[in-house]
Amino acid sequence: MNENLSIRFGSLELSNPLVAVSGTFGYGFDYEPVIPPEIFGAIVVKGTSLEPWPGNPPPRIVETPAGMLNAIGLENPGVEVLVEEYLPRLAARDVRVIVNVVGKTVEEYVGVARRLQGIEGVDALELNVSCPNVKAGGMSFGTSPAAIDNLVGAVRAATDAPLIVKLTPNVTDIAEVARAAEEAGADAISLINTLLGMAIDVDAGKPVLANVVGGLSGPAVRPVALRCVYQVRAATSLPILGLGGVASAEDVIAFIMAGASAVGIGTALFADPLAPHRILSDLAAYRARYDEWPVGRAHL
């Protein structure tokens, strides 16, 4: 990988700013050989719970203008399968791995963090307090500064790993939530998770998704994500993993200028699996314009 694309994201040195985001890249291997996991600065593996979660009934996805809604419901085989099956395979590869952690209760989040404590190949944890598609936990933690404080504090005490808190845009004041995460001991913020939305099948006269509502992602959400990154950068000093609708190198630079020092790509992989290759190639030209990555440059 091109060395001059490297960037510091908190305590992690990434080979480049591009990160495959949780829920869009499985455990790193589904897109091989089209997208080898090594091309990313880091990958965030699927949201992982203490016990297996079955996920929501179908239909789980629907296309929307410049994006899609999903209501997967955090289907995952649980932390034990992650540790036994996927992390050893990832440890054999030259890629930084961030584990997205989910739970219905504080104790479940803490349980996952404890199980991952000291496991080889886990570079950071990303606390998912922002999934709109599960009935308990998820977004209910991320919309309340008090709940964030309680959860982040408890997980902080259970792990030495860098702790990233992934925020939802479905709040009135995202800066307030980010400050709560910072005060509770988070090492970094990632944002945004999906925007709550829905679609209706007018022929059937009912919602398209079995879960009724789902999370909107794709280029449609990019301006919202950029705004959130900008606001959180202004409100905290934590490093930011910015994501939401990123599909080009220009998008990556825009998120960096808004304040991100790592930039996620997700839904764009579905539309164009060659997008990461193209972005990294184009990023080299952007990088050459600057002495250092222009993190936060757009702040006046």
Binding site: G23, T24, F25, G26, D30, Y31, K46, E51, P52, W53, P54, G55, N56, P57, P58, P59, R60, I61, V62, E63, M68, N70, I72, E75, P77, G78, T267, L269, F270, P273
Partner: peptide, 27 residues
Amino acid sequence: EEHMACGVGACLGCAVPMSRPESGKSY
């Protein structure tokens, strides 16, 4: 046939229920 997003197994969007769920896996 099912609507799909990724098509490669990463996104879990095209779920079909299993006849015999096993150890927390239903789709």
